[in-house]
Design a protein around this nucleic acid. Structure first.
Lengths: 414, 414
DNA sequence: GAACTTCGTCTATTTGATAGACAAAGCGCT
DNA sequence: AGCGCTTTGTCTATCAAATAGACGAAGTTC
């Protein structure tokens, strides 16, 4: 054996249920011994040993030295073969792109973010993404054919089965463009999955955040737009055409302003980032907030949503009022969704997530006032603690979910 | 063998996945041959024959004569042993109770409805239900120990795991009362499952109505109250505390009337049966509807929601307006839920379901106006065609779902 | 150093499924 | 009626997967 062992693997990776169980245990625990598996699965020692031998032979597992003795002979440790392959998570936002390179068990190895404008055509945008991926691969010493899965989150309605955007308001040029096809040209061995950005954030929260082991939750992203990722019975709910969670265009006030969707008084038009900035400009111009006026002059006549937050921290009353109003409108909509969906957790993320407690308190108050007691007694509403990581973590998780496919799934209901 | 074969079975019935597959095939097709099973499962003839022998021995299957030849030897037909046991479905409404006795494959054998007042204490109410069940059993010649499963739907929020009502507005005396424990005293062999009435209607629509093979839908019941049964990824979504679907208390107008829940402008307070009747009384008194005034005098000063429907059919403009207003409010709420949940179907049932097209058109129009195009292009909004059957059919399906338990479910995700 | 544990391998055995031979039963054509 | 062909159902030999348990290697504890 003159050359190091490097099996050629192609996605998707088919596993039988026994193999899946072993790999799942390894993902959770990192390192594990053969008799650990025997104990947790109830299999005989021989079967466990045989399955492990097979997985090692196929290149999924490798030995990792000896463990500590439990009062007898030292066990041999097993871990996932991190050189088998890699997965990539891409989180495309309206104004930025986040890329992560991860090993096959979901551990992030390299990470990179940069500003980007999603309104350009998909080809140059995605070419730049691919370039970033190659740079991260170089840093890690990873070849193109070792990329086995790529998960991509995009800020618009996705037809999940086809992997294309349908009528995306932010990025009209992307409509029906095959993101999967374009990316796959550079990574022939990879399985490419495209999903809505909020869905991947929800997935990230479920896999690596506070949403772990939570059966029913809603991840609300508040930024330029407002959207929700939904988890029902432990699974992402995408809806019949894949556009579930589009709560930004729920009506809060029939007599409200006109939204870019054409309707009046949509939540997004009244409570999202641009609306907050617009209200701030008005407060500055009307003189009700000297602080904002000052900030606006410094910024060259423009105010961003973050400026309202800054003003609020400095004790500016008008800014506080703007944030409270936003929180209340969001809370009013969430109250209805809590009655309908009865989640145990609501996680709030996106650019607004660092707006601190004033926003959160307003949201909570509105939800508690308008939801049924049975639905709110055990309801937790909090900012996601994952920050910008939720997106890429979820994109990596999405890639992994579709990279490993379990064969022979028997019928689950009668 | 002097006595006919009657095995003693106790719920829940444990099946392995092969047995489950056979029984599922039999449920669908009614009668089936051994080689049919071979073809649809891909198993060898020997395995199929062996499994069938086992199921016949256990009493689940029985032979049903010979089938027609396919060009060779005649096959022996197999069917489910209908004498093995029975299940019961009970649909408790606010003012009525529906009971059905069904065989083990869900076919309804006997059915009975009567008026009942759910506001009384649970013991006498449920005693009457048990009495009805025994009467249906007598008609069918079925013994008490042959009842293997009982599904019960109740009009209020149910803690599904415990099988008790939690803070039910319609039936406060039932709070925390163990329906399961009470019913099980009369049917020691039965597995008793209690669920919300709207959930069982959704289940009925899914199993025996137009919801078959529909992954994501909402069943909306409009009657004295308004509630929704939710199916996500083909499964009932009950939410974290089991009260999902309580859409009757979503706000439609902050300045609206006070609801019994204490809030203002709830959908239920403005668009459900009592609100319709109340508006009709006002229309009668104000003189805007001579027809309703006439009807009210005939009824002794009282108007029911059905009277508005009658008036509308006769061309009464005020009644039409009342119905349209209700439909619009319901549609406005559903529009938000369509954006959030993206179902492919909405089924409308309950006492209002025979209000005809005016209501439906108003609902559809409101939903289409306020929902996103991607969510509505393939959305169907229709009355449930099951009428009063949805409840009991679903209750029977619920009982069956928990009566048969498939062992050794392997992990489905990695 | 003796007694007891744990770990990992190996063998004999059991269990479950398969392939394919074969007989029974039926159809269609001459 | 007879012949060839098909389908059905049973039986047997065989293969594959999992188990139990023996056994030696390697460690710990007293």
């Amino acid at each position: 054996m003159t050359q190091s062992f490097r099996p050629r693997i192609k996605a998707p990776i088919l596993l039988n249920s026994a193999e899946a169980e072993i790999i799942r245990a390894l993902r959770r625990q990192g390192c594990i011994t053969s008799s650990d598996i025997t104990r947790m699965t109830g299999w005989s020692k021989a079967k466990t040993a045989q399955d492990i031998r097979d997985l090692v032979e196929k290149g999924f597992l490798m030995e990792a030295g000896e463990g500590i003795s439990q009062g007898g002979r030292k066990p041999r440790l097993l871990c996932i073969n991190r050189n088998l392959g890699f997965v990539v998570g891409v989180d495309i936002g309206a104004t930025s792109v986040d890329v992560a390179l991860a090993d096959i068990s979901g551990g992030i190895l390299q990470r990179y973010s940069e500003a980007a404008d999603v309104r350009q055509r998909p080809e140059p945008f995605l070419s730049r993404c691919v370039e970033i991926i190659f740079q991260l691969m170089d840093l890690q010493g990873c070849r193109s054919d070792q990329i086995l899965g790529i998960g991509i989150g995009v800020p618009g309605p996705v037809d999940f089965a086809r992997g294309v955007l349908v009528a995306p308001p932010l990025m009209p040029d992307w409509e029906n463009f095959s993101i999967r096809g374009f990316v796959k040209e550079s990574f022939p061995n990879a399985f490419v999955v495209v999903d809505n950005d909020v869905n991947i954030m929800a997935l990230g929260e479920q896999r690596a955040g506070d949403g772990i082991n939570v059966d029913h939750f809603i991840f609300v992203k508040i930024g330029t737009g407002i959207g929700a990722g939904i988890v029902s019975n432990g699974k992402i709910h995408r809806g019949s055409t894949g556009c579930a969670g589009d709560i930004g265009h729920i009506c809060v006030d029939k007599n409200g302003p006109i939204c870019r969707c054409g309707n009046t008084g949509c939540l997004e038009a009244m409570a999202a980032g641009p609306a907050i900035a617009e209200k701030a400009v008005q407060a500055a111009l009307s003189g009700s907030s000297p602080f904002l006026k000052n900030l606006m002059n410094q910024n060259g006549g423009v105010l961003r949503p973050e400026d309202v937050n800054t003003a609020c921290r400095e004790g500016d009353q008008a800014a506080l009022e703007i944030i409270r109003a936003s929180g209340q409108m969001i809370g009013d909509v969430l109250a209805g969704l809590v009655n309908f969906f009865n989640p145990s957790h609501i996680f709030i993320g996106g650019g607004i997530a660092n707006f601190g407690n004033h926003l959160l308190v307003s949201i909570r108050r509105a939800v508690l006032r308008r939801s049924l007691p049975l639905a709110t007694t055990h309801l937790s509403i909090n900012f996601s603690r994952m920050g910008a990581d939720a997106g890429v973590t979820g994109a990596v998780a999405l890639a992994l979910e579709y990279l490993f496919v379990i064969e022979d799934q028997p019928t689950t209901t009668i």
